[in-house]
């Protein structure tokens, strides 16, 4: 005789997933060692050309956006480099430098992607007085403004903001996820998204599971 079956509540539609991209984009950078004002002051003392350094998923780009908006330059020119972008095309360089005055800010996200030669070429065109804030996985391209660090408590803090305060068992899970992804908060949250979509991570309301 066939056993009776009941549907398992293990599906969280993407629209109800608290770790969806639209929610992550609202998260602000958590300042710890230095406040926003201190970092802005630090940026000035470094000659207004500095680097936010750290591994992938450590909040560099989030902090860069936060600092750029707080600096209130006349305008900000953004150059976003993706994996494998060893060169900034001349047309983009021309557009960036032709539109930029020294009171403006040039932001390069992912500067470590550029080859040594192309980085030097960029620096020559940049000029000494031009405000510039970059993110990079490695030190040495520009003076380091801050080394971005992550922690399990930061991950727990973000999870609290997105869902609810993790209980002891969830806290343990977060530690394992954090270690697995070597402190990469972005990857950790992606894993939480997947767990949530399978019903393996609780959402705030049981009604959101189908």
């Amino acid at each position: 005789m066939k056993a009776k079956q009941k549907p398992r509540n293990n599906f969280c539609p993407a629209r109800n997933n608290p770790f969806a991209t639209e929610h992550l984009q609202k998260i602000r950078y958590r300042f710890s060692d230095e406040s926003l004002a201190e970092l802005l002051c630090h940026f000035d003392t470094l000659g207004k050309q500095a680097a936010i350094v750290g591994p992938q998923g450590h909040g560099k780009t989030t902090l860069q956006k936060e600092l750029a908006s707080a600096m209130v330059p006349s305008q900000t020119q953004w150059v976003k480099l993706r994996e494998g972008d060893r060169i900034i095309p001349q047309s983009i360089l021309h557009e960036v430098f032709s539109k930029t005055g020294t009171s403006d800010l040039i932001c390069v996200d992912g500067a470590e992607q550029l080859s040594w030669w192309n980085w030097k070429k960029f620096l020559r065109q940049l000029g000494k007085d031009q405000r510039c804030l970059i993110t990079s996985h490695r030190q040495g391209l520009l003076p380091t403004l801050i080394n971005c660090k992550t922690s399990v408590s930061l991950l727990a803090d973000l999870v609290t903001e997105l869902t609810s305060t993790p209980d002891a068992a969830q806290q343990k899970e977060l530690e394992l996820i954090f270690i697995k992804h070597r402190g990469d908060i972005r990857q950790s949250i992606r894993e939480l998204y997947d767990r949530c979509s399978n019903g393996a991570w609780p959402v705030t309301s049981t009604e959101t599971l189908i």
Partner: peptide
Amino acid sequence: ILLHNQQYDDV
């Protein structure tokens, strides 16, 4: 439209 394979538990 919900896109998922519903899983079942024996009861």
